[in-house]
């Protein structure tokens, strides 16, 4: 569908270029200052309507988008699945058409199935922002991770990044692998064989390697990214017990010793303490988990601003 002038979707990292990624990150850097003011509000999106359409539970991401929209003076409306008419039998496209009839400028969507944001983008005149679709992508998470890395390491190019855990179910991993390889990082992925998809060969060409053990991924890394064990998605047995997972793939201080001495630790949250990450690591100064949450607001402000008409910093 033809979008009104200057309206743009953010469906994933896969379909945007390295320079577009850098443009979003530079814009987000400039939005950070707004969040440090006493009056944390600017009139840039006054009169615009942002709908947060969440078919899956989320506290952090939905709140982050809502705060971002409100700090830009947009009107934010939250719709969650439990209160929506999907429960009454409405199809996704009908829901989208009904929302579209109310003339929102932007719809932020999260859904358990991959491709839903793309489907909405085809039927809606609003800018569509993907806030997580199935195991496909979660672009704003990858952008805020990149912002956190840039803040501490200066640039992403040439960094060695370990991504550890449940790759199979992780949209965070996919968006991050796209982003990091596009910006020239070397990515090493490790996880139980059952949780690392076989069809990742297209990533391998771009600089990603799959290694069997967490130690192989972490050794010499600048950044260690730990993924959450998604217990709610594991309908069959991918590993024997959580305890066994933690013994083989949990990030402990001893394992972190293998990384560079100034290595940083990221986790997209919510954390399972004592399973994929030991509390001593999560609470250490190398863990930047709360920085990620902080930068998330600035990234989403930048994305909302750019999706509804602004152009990127350079």
């Amino acid at each position: 569908m033809e979008k009104p002038f200057r309206r743009r979707d953010l469906l994933g990292i896969r379909n945007i270029s390295a320079s577009e990624i850098i443009g979003i990150l530079d814009t987000a850097e400039n939005f950070r200052e707004v969040n440090t003011r006493e009056i944390k509000k600017v009139p840039a999106l006054r009169g615009k309507t942002v709908i947060n359409l969440f078919f899956e539970n989320s506290t952090r991401t939905r709140t982050s988008f809502e705060i971002a929209a409100k700090r830009l003076s947009a009107d934010a409306v939250n719709i969650s699945v439990s209160s929506s008419s999907v429960a009454k039998g409405e199809t996704l496209v009908d829901t989208a058409l009904n929302l579209d009839a109310m003339d929102p400028d932007c719809i932020v969507v999260r859904h358990g199935s991959a491709g839903v944001p793309h489907q909405l983008a085809n039927v809606s005149r609003a800018a569509i922002i993907n806030a997580g679709d199935g195991a496909n992508e979660h672009p704003t998470q990858a952008l805020l991770d990149a912002m956190t890395i840039r803040e501490h390491k200066g640039s992403i190019e040439g960094l060695e990044v370990a991504i550890v855990g449940d790759i199979l179910h992780s949209r965070v991993a996919r968006s991050n692998i796209h982003l990091l390889t596009k910006l020239g990082a070397k990515v090493r992925v490790a996880g139980p064989g059952t949780l690392v998809p076989g069809g990742f060969s297209h990533f391998v060409e771009k600089g990603m390697t799959v290694v069997p053990h967490i130690e192989d991924a972490i050794r010499g890394a600048d950044v260690v990214m730990i993924l959450r064990i998604q217990r709610e998605r594991q309908d069959s047995a991918y590993f024997p017990t959580l305890r066994e997972y933690s013994i083989h793939y949990g990030l402990t201080n001893e394992r972190l010793e293998l990384a560079k001495t100034d290595a940083i630790v990221l986790h997209p949250g919510p954390m399972n303490r004592g399973i994929e990450i030991a509390s001593e690591v999560a609470d250490s100064s190398r863990s930047l988990i709360l920085d990620q949450v902080k930068y998330g607001v600035a990234v989403r402000m930048a994305v909302l601003y750019l999706a509804t008409g602004g152009s990127a910093s350079h």
Partner: peptide
């Protein structure tokens, strides 16, 4: 001061302003 976010022409056609930092 970077006044981009306070401009009155943000929603008119042709405006394509880049956000910079206020210090």
């Amino acid at each position: 001061l970077d006044i981009t976010l306070y401009r009155d022409d943000l929603s008119t056609v042709g405006a394509n302003p880049v956000v910079n930092r206020t210090e």
